[in-house]
């Protein structure tokens, strides 16, 4: 095998014992998003956030996975959410890593979309990192219409919407 560069011959040639063996492994998969997540991703491709509501506890999940993780029942009602939400919590990323495409420092935030009961992660831009705060109201910034696709790259980032901050009590349950 071509990857076995550190193999040495212990069979009497005096090169010493084998100390390591490289055995490259690669397995490819075809991912099935599922019915609910497919609906969500198709919504993203049209520039909108689609959630699903639990018929028992009435919570709205976005992105939906087809079930309410609390009640274990199928989420059947589809709910179209608006474009605004609230930063519930966040972190400042100061660590560079391979493949990084955004200048550090930047903000990775948990964003609770209006009408949703589950926050998801998003990038915050157009505001200095040291001014981001819990309760900050934000709006999604989408890529150009002709660049929209069924993936989260369609949402470029979130930026301040200019509204007054949300009160702590309105999102404390989602921390």
């Amino acid at each position: 095998m071509s990857g076995a560069g550190t193999l040495t011959d212990a069979g009497g040639t005096g090169e010493g014992p084998v100390t390591s063996v490289a055995t490259p492994i690669r397995v490819e998969y075809q991912y099935t998003a599922g019915l609910a997540q497919s609906r969500f991703l198709k919504g993203i491709a049209e520039g909108k956030f689609l959630g699903q509501r639990c018929p028992k506890c009435h919570k709205v999940y976005v992105p939906p996975r087809g079930s309410c993780p609390t009640d274990g029942v199928a989420t059947t009602d589809e709910v179209e959410l608006g474009n605004t939400g609230t930063v519930t919590t966040y972190c400042v990323v100061n660590v560079p890593f391979q493949g990084q495409s955004i200048e550090i420092p930047y903000i990775c935030a948990q964003i609770l979309m209006d009408g949703a009961n589950l926050a998801f992660m998003g990038l915050i831009q157009e505001i200095p990192a040291d001014q981001v705060r819990m309760g900050l109201r934000v709006e999604a910034v989408w890529v150009d219409r002709d660049e929209l696709g069924p993936n989260m790259a369609s949402v470029k980032y979130f930026r301040p919407s200019g509204e007054p901050d949300a009160a702590y009590e309105t999102f404390v349950e989602y921390l």
């Binding site: 099935t32 998003a33 599922g34 019915l35 609910a36 497919s38 087809g66 079930s67 029942v73 199928a74």
Partner: peptide, 11 residues
Amino acid sequence: EDHRNEVEMLM
């Protein structure tokens, strides 16, 4: 199973 994820298959 083309369309459903594991959770949707199990429910």
